[in-house]
Every structure is written in structure tokens, then in C-alpha cells.
């Protein structure tokens, strides 16, 4: 029997999605906290966003509510905008510092 995509999604219990997304999110957070390279930190943030996307999709499917998935598209679009701006900033930093190590940046303090 042909299954709709939501139905396919629902074959896995919701909890698993939540656990998965949370784990993914936590990995992202851990990455943000432990890495010093600005690009990698930023990638970890993207990972966090993707965890959210997974979560939203799962909820959306379970609730049979398209809003969640629409939200995902918005997140993707916004993330794209963020990526462009973020990479621009990182490039700018690299130009001035020849490096993207965030710990080099501590002129602003106290």
C-alpha cells in the first residue's frame, strides 16, 4: 500500500524524532562551545537549525499540519541569508586577521 510521506514519517514514534533532534541540537551546541574556528562554529549553528527543521517536520507530520513545514522553508531561507552575511563577516575578518580563530578577537572587553 502506497504511503503518504507523513505516514512514512509517522512509522517512527515521535519520541525518536524528538530524541534525535535534541541530540543533533546538542551536538551543534557542543560544537559551538568547543570549536574555535569561526566557520566551524557557524556550521555547528547550522546544525542546530537543522535539528529544529527535523523537529518541526516531525511535529508537522504528526499533527497533519502544514504550518510546521512551511516554517521549515522559512528557516532555510533565513539560514541562507544568515550564511551569506556570516560568511561575508568571516571573510572580512580573515582579510584583516589572516585567521578565523575566534579567540584572536578580544580587543573589545572589560
Amino acid at each position: 500500500m502506497e504511503q503518504t510521506i507523513p505516514e512514512v514519517i509517522r512509522t517512527v514514534p515521535l519520541e525518536y524524532y524528538i530524541y534525535f533532534a535534541t541530540a543533533l541540537f546538542a551536538i551543534g551546541v557542543t560544537g559551538v562551545l568547543t570549536r574555535r574556528n569561526a566557520i566551524i562554529i557557524f556550521m555547528c549553528v547550522e546544525l542546530m537549525l537543522n535539528a529544529v527543521n527535523v523537529l518541526l517536520t516531525a511535529f508537522s507530520a504528526y499533527r497533519s499540519d502544514p504550518n510546521g513545514q512551511i516554517f521549515v522553508f522559512f528557516i532555510m531561507a533565513v539560514a541562507a541569508a544568515e550564511v551569506s552575511v556570516g560568511l561575508g563577516i568571516i571573510v572580512m575578518i580573515y582579510r584583516n586577521f589572516q585567521n578565523t580563530d575566534v579567540n584572536l578577537l578580544n580587543r573589545l572587553k572589560w
Binding site: 544568515e82 552575511v85 556570516g86 568571516i90 578577537l105 578580544n106 573589545l108
Partner: peptide
């Protein structure tokens, strides 16, 4: 630069 990166 630093402000932008930190903020971002």
C-alpha cells in the same frame, strides 16, 4: 569586525 563577528 570583531563586533560583527561576535554579534553574528
Amino acid at each position: 569586525n570583531e563586533a560583527a563577528l561576535k554579534y553574528f
